[in-house]
Simulated scan of single mutants.
Amino acid sequence: MELRVLLVLAVLVLTATAGLVWRSRNGRFVAARAVPDATAADPVLTAADLGAPLGTAATFLQLSSEACAPCRSTAAVLRALAAERSGVAHVEVRAEERLDLVRRFSVLRTPTVLVLDGSGAVRGRMSGATTRAQAVDALDRCPATADV
């Protein structure tokens, strides 16, 4: 009996720890790594790739799925921020319709937001529900978009 109680407590602690780590990573901006091969180009997306115009300063490219509640809240945050800041655009695409982008950028969960500079180069990414503060932080930390 005592062993079962210890086992249940251990599972609860591990589950709580995993949940806290998961939650702490939601919406966190991660800058794009420099490409190690000098001959390879940074990943760049065009308006034709997305089917929508890019922002002149920055674009939030959000990969979402139909049955995703955090996707809706993230879209509302990014749409509002793009409406307030000149040169910033928000483009939302369905991950299930754009598997080419999902594979190309190793998207493992939705929402995933790629932060593009004015030329369409990927400067970073955020995964999970994103708050306004996190989105503003992403713009500030993204070198090519910091003046937006």
Rank of each mutant, 00 (worst) to 15 (best):
A82T: 06
A34L: 14
R104T: 12
V5T: 15
D147W: 03
T56S: 12
S24C: 10
Q62C: 06
M126P: 00
V107K: 03
A133W: 03
A10Q: 05
P111S: 03
A135V: 00
L116Q: 00
W22M: 11
R94P: 10
D137E: 07
A121M: 10
T74G: 01
V148Q: 04
L7K: 06
M1K: 13
L6S: 13
R28P: 14
A31E: 07
A138H: 03
G128C: 03
A52C: 04
D37E: 12
C68M: 05
T56P: 10
L12F: 01
N26K: 13
E84P: 08
D37A: 13
T46E: 04
A48W: 09
L3V: 15
D147C: 02
E84W: 05
A57I: 12
P53Q: 08
A48G: 14
D117P: 11
D140M: 09
S65L: 12
A144K: 02
V136T: 07
D147G: 07
A48S: 12
A80V: 14
L61H: 03
L139S: 00
R72K: 15
T130G: 01
N26V: 07
V91H: 04
A133P: 05
V88G: 01
V77R: 01
A38N: 13
A69G: 15
A40Y: 09
T17M: 11
L7W: 08
C71Y: 00
T130P: 05
C68H: 04
A76D: 09
A121K: 11
A89R: 07
A18R: 04
L54G: 05
A95M: 06
A76H: 06
G55I: 01
E84V: 01
N26T: 06
V107P: 05
A82H: 04
V93L: 06
A38K: 15
L108F: 15
S106E: 12
E96A: 10
T145V: 05
T59Y: 02
S64G: 08
T110K: 06
A41Q: 15
S119I: 10
E66Y: 10
S127Q: 06
L7V: 07
A80T: 15
T110C: 08
L3C: 14
R33D: 12
L54Q: 10
M126Y: 00
L12C: 04
E84M: 01
A138E: 02
E66K: 09
D140R: 12
S73W: 03
R72G: 15
S65R: 13
L139P: 01
S106D: 13
V91E: 02
V13E: 05
E84D: 09
N26P: 10
S64C: 08
L114V: 07
V115K: 01
A95S: 09
A10K: 08
L7Y: 05
D100M: 08
G118K: 04
L50H: 07
